[in-house]
Design a protein around this nucleic acid. Structure first.
Lengths: 282, 282
DNA sequence: ATCCCTGGTCAATAATTTATGCTTCAATTG
DNA sequence: CAATTGAAGCATAAATTATTGACCAGGGAT
């Protein structure tokens, strides 16, 4: 039981001094953190031993035990909200900038999580896991995420071909076909060359997996499996940042599912990570 | 900040004894309630004063203060966990995976925000804003973030040279000097070639800006301005993901400050974004 | 009315716990 | 190799907490 509830419930049967202690604690529970039993006694003009006896009567081991319990109770009650609010008031401007950006990212993460049904994610994981080769392309800012994800795939032992060069990729996929996967990153999903590439690849009986913004766009319409990202902000450059964050998180989720879905891949990944580390830090 | 997050974030820079204390607390936080500083010391076979000094180094008033804070944190976390557990019963498995990963990212974001003082961030922004040329390098997984940030810098109209190729970059920086900035991304900060490059650049009177993990590492030691990233997880591949997320957020914060600090740059960025969009979607 | 008992309080002090000064030792640097 | 630095422990001071015993007030019982 919460110590505060316990104190209130026994308050009626207490002596005068005890009741004063009880009232003080109930009203100033958050002050208790900085009070020793002696200070509390002084604040009430009573003796320190009365405070200790009070705590023992209530069934606590002693004063520090009561204090600890009250601390827990306050923390549980606030659930952290006051602490966060207080910190924000104290914090500097830059902190609040970083914090508010993080909040935007969190919103985008949630929106993105909710528009991608688990079935689709699962199907995407299965497709990648079972693929013969995975071709990955992204242009412009999408190139960065395309690269990162391709690197991760290859660390899992999945054969991956990646480029930002449409012409080169067009050549690469000509060798692909049934059992292969083409993964296209395109925020707005209406890059004609990428659409063409997607159509061609489907004609060769490969699986087309797209990652686009949550709009109706031609690329998404072509896909066997379309992953979607939702992220919005008034400032275009902020929107771009939160888009990328949500996209990254979506990919991270896929990656972890890929890791954990198969023991062999997992082992391969760990070995690769170690090798990479050795390579970079001789 | 939660004392547990704080302990974990500083764990890497601790001495052996301190790390044992940290680990014990992280693993047995709930036991702390019944431990005096002496008992904790006995449990670890170390001296009581080491325990007290540990708490003070972390910024607590003393041992009881740490203990109280940990009590609060556990109480809060319990509340959080029960709430999360309830949600997990309702939600599907994949949702909880994505959600828990996001929580990890949030912790890393907070830890990273707290170890980079606003002054340092401000100085980094000023250095980049005032730079003649900015050289950017990152090797391996850091390459991706190096690319992304370099792209953003150039969209702001800042002259930027980026590569993952140490030899090429070595040649590039030979033309650099006073007023220029070299930005090195290196998670572990002990890549000999990058250290060499950093030293060379400083010899040429350029400003060296590094982004590394929050450990003591040679590269960080060389820097004029060292930005730090704190991110931890038991699974190495998860740790790598949360590291990258925290790093990305740090860079995003810098970028936004750069945007908003100068009207001309802001305008340039908007123009570039528009132009890029037209280019990709003719 | 006196006595005795009981519960409550406090001052004094014992016991425990925490904090600090000082020493030693090992690692690092010049 | 000397000098410096920093971590860790020991001894001890300081503080906090717990207990003891004395005192007193109130409420029956003799």
């Amino acid at each position: 039981m919460s110590p505060l509830v316990k104190i209130r419930s026994e308050r009626d049967q207490m002596s005068a001094v005890e009741r004063r202690i009880a009232d003080f604690i109930l009203e100033n529970a958050q002050l208790l953190r900085d009070y020793s039993s002696q200070q509390l006694a002084n604040a009430l003009g009573i003796s320190q031993s009365s405070v200790v006896k009070f705590t023992q009567k209530l069934g606590f081991k002693g004063y520090p035990d009561l204090k600890y319990s009250v601390g827990e109770a306050i923390a549980r009650a606030d659930n952290g909200e006051t602490a966060v609010a207080a910190r924000e008031v104290v914090g500097r401007e830059q902190e609040s900038l970083a914090t508010s950006l993080w909040r935007r990212k969190s919103e985008a993460e949630e929106a993105t999580r909710l528009i991608n049904p688990p079935e689709v994610l699962g199907a995407a994981v299965d497709a990648l896991a079972a693929a013969g080769k995975v071709f990955v392309i992204g242009v412009g800012e999408d190139d960065i995420y395309s690269r990162g994800f391709a690197l991760k795939l290859s660390m899992l032992g999945i054969a991956t071909v990646q480029s930002f060069d449409v012409a080169r990729m067009m050549a690469s996929i000509s060798s692909g076909g049934k059992g292969d996967v083409l993964l296209i990153f395109s925020e707005h999903g209406n890059h004609p060359a990428l659409c063409k590439m997607g159509r061609l690849f489907r004609d060769q009986r490969g699986r087309l997996l797209t990652v686009t913004r949550h709009t109706s766009n031609p690329l998404r319409a072509l896909a066997d499996l379309a992953l979607l990202v939702s992220a919005h902000d008034e400032q275009p450059y902020v929107q771009s940042i939160v888009y990328q964050s949500a996209l990254q998180h979506l990919l991270d989720g896929l990656f972890i599912q890929l890791c954990e879905g198969d023991e062999r891949r997992h082992a391969q990944l760990l070995a690769n990570l170690e090798r990479l580390q050795l390579l970079l830090e001789p």
